[in-house]
Amino acid sequence: MNTSLFHGQLVRLAAPNPETDAEALSRWQRDAEFLRLLDSDAARPLPVAQNKTDMEAIVARENSFAFMIRTLADDRVIGFIGLGRPQWTHGDAWLGIGLGDREYWGKGCGTDAMRVMLRFAFTELNLHRVSLGVFEYNPRAVRSYEKAGFVLEGRTRQDVRRDGRYWDSLWMGILREEWERQNPKSQDSRSKARTAG
């Protein structure tokens, strides 16, 4: 049983520390493939000072929930995850994730972090749904999102241009009722917590 809201099986979500994490971010940004998988901006590495300023701004924003992903085994920072742009009246927010450290690709750390983040979204923020966007050329991410329970809701055609051709953006979402169906255990632990008080 999970006793902490921020702990998964392999990773935990931790508060960003711009002092030290900005350096990790700059290291990951040397990897253009990582940047192209992350968003549709023109890929470019940023200096540590810039990343530090950007991170401080994100941390200060009350309306976004950004965390660093740390391994449980050795507390290493391997990426980041966050929920942003919440529409509180509608109970919808956008999820973003990046695993900067290639050593940890394809090992279930991203999926694990997604599960922790979704539990946070549905049991702490009490959202009705969570949304995300991903690119056609990132099938590994799509598989991981599907494993976490996301459903494909459509594709914007020819939305991103990389290496001389156009690629679709894919849009995925998960509803509270879908998440609850897939996570009956956390329902149990919640009602136990209530009776324990």
Partner: peptide, 19 residues
């Protein structure tokens, strides 16, 4: 191209957001 299910809550019910 995209139907974001139940993304809008108005008048006591859920509506899709379309792209």
């Amino acid at each position: 191209e995209v139907r974001r299910r139940q993304a809008i809550q108005r008048e006591g019910r859920r509506w899709d957001d379309l792209f």
